[in-house]
Amino acid sequence: MAQHKVNYTQDGGLPVALTSIDKVVNWGRSNSLWALTYGLACCGIEMMAAGASRYDFDRYGTIFRASPRQSDLMIVAGTLTKKHAEFIKRLYDQMTEPRWVISMGSCANTGGMFNTYATVQGVDRIIPVDLYLPGCAPRPETLQYGVMLLQKKIRANKAGNAQKPKRLM
């Protein structure tokens, strides 16, 4: 059995870290980004691959949740069609603040190659987006890079101030 030995003679002698509220809160927020599974199309498969064995998303603290109430991050992975648009708004409204949105892939960014009657030309017409990932479909590495940049963005926030609710309008 492994023994946990704490060296009390180092780092000020006690297992205590002094910091500010901002840092602690942002540390917690940025490293437990629970994502809502929002796999709509092809990008959803890459999102799953990012969560699966080789790319192991859990080490970022990003765990896929099936319920909007439990998640902080919505990864819109795939084509959003006009028939589906109302549901993404509904689910986004159900997520608790603070919440972030990653638009993954060309279809979610701008409609991509599906320049047709049935697709929404960019998910930012429906909900506010924090990060756009290019690619069709973006590799899992791209998604991981995106999440790391989002963590950085979260760390830049002031945790003490109430988060300004993001609204499209």
Binding site: A85, E86, G111, N115, T116, A118, Q121, G122, I126, M169
Partner: peptide, 29 residues
Amino acid sequence: LQGDEFAAWYEVDKIYGKEARDIIGPEIR
């Protein structure tokens, strides 16, 4: 192919209402 007037504003009209058209703006096709 890219839809008619109804299709262009379908999701905006349904979710936010017609008066939001000016704020959200037309689709970039």
